[in-house]
Structures are given as C-alpha cells and as structure tokens.
Simulated scan of single mutants.
Amino acid sequence: MTTVSSPLTGHVIGLAAVPDPVFSGAMVGPGTAIDPVREPSVAVSPVDGVVVSLHAHAFVVVDRDGHGVLTHLGIDTVQLNGEGFEVLVNKGDTVVRGQEMVRWDPAAVEAAGKSPVCPVVALEATAEALTGLVEDGDVTAGATLFSWT
C-alpha cells in the first residue's frame, strides 16, 4: 500500500471542484486537489520514489510499487512557460516523501490569471483502489491525502 501525502499546505477541495474538466472528471485518474495558501512555497514529493516526469508546473513520482503520483501546480500553468517556478530536482532523481521539488508562488499564478488549485492524482488507478481519500479541510504539506492499494 502506498500512502500519498500532501505536497502543499492549503485547503483540500477534492477533484470535482478543480476548474478543469480533465481533472474534475478524473480522466487522468482519481485523487484530490488542494487550494494552496497564497504565499511563496515549495511543493514537496507526495511519495518516496523516482521522478519520471518533471516540468516547472507538474511532476510525477513513481514509488517502488509502480504507483505514479502526479502533482500539478495550478491549472493551465503550462502557459506560463515556467515563469515563477523553480525546479529543485532532476528527472530520474530518487526522492523521499517531503523532499522539496518545485518552488513557486500561488499568488503570482493567480495574478497571472491562472487557478493555483493543485490536483494530486493517482495515475492509472481506479477510484476503488484509493482509501481514506481526503476531499475537504485544511491540510499541511506532508499530511496524508489518501492510501493506494
């Protein structure tokens, strides 16, 4: 079983509330979403594993069980072309839960006209594979969001 932790501090809103149909419809996979605090912060790895995909606005870490977890920093933030994001790791790196991955400023993302809401998605999973899914309430980086069996 994989425990997936929050990569950010903020308020959990659940995937259904994400302002993007690909995420809100769970087309990429089940999970939840965080409306982050509006201050410069660092997104951390939600699991121990290997960084298999890395962009300024999003990263995927795959754990030893082959579970890939996508953290997407904001919605449509790819259009910012990395502006306001500082990547702190490299693709292929082995990381541990809580390790700093990307420095960013959710308030600046919002000021640029994008939503800072961050989906945290269990890639290629079924909703039934997730237990203890948090979809509401305040959360700190490192707190458990869900377990994946």
Rank of each mutant, 00 (worst) to 15 (best):
N81L: 12
G10F: 14
A43T: 07
T140N: 14
P30F: 11
A26T: 02
S147F: 03
T94F: 00
L8N: 13
V89Y: 01
A16Q: 13
A33W: 11
L70I: 09
L73A: 05
V69C: 12
A17L: 12
D20Q: 14
P40Y: 11
I34D: 14
G113H: 08
L8I: 10
E86A: 12
V109D: 02
A127N: 03
V95D: 01
E86C: 01
H72T: 11
A16C: 06
F85T: 02
E86P: 02
P19A: 13
G113T: 02
V89N: 07
V18D: 03
L123P: 03
V109Y: 06
H55K: 04
A125R: 08
R103T: 13
A122R: 04
A125Y: 00
V62I: 12
G84Y: 07
G10P: 14
P7K: 05
A16W: 09
V18E: 05
P106H: 09
V102M: 00
V78E: 15
F146D: 06
V60Y: 11
S147G: 10
A143G: 14
P30H: 05
V134H: 10
F23H: 10
A111Q: 09
V117L: 07
K114Y: 07
E110K: 13
E86K: 06
V60G: 05
S24C: 08
V139Q: 03
E100I: 02
P30E: 01
W104E: 00
T126A: 15
C118T: 15
R64Q: 11
V60N: 09
V37M: 02
G82K: 10
E83F: 03
P119R: 09
W148Q: 00
D138A: 14
P21K: 15
H11Y: 15
A17C: 09
W104Y: 15
A122V: 13
L88V: 08
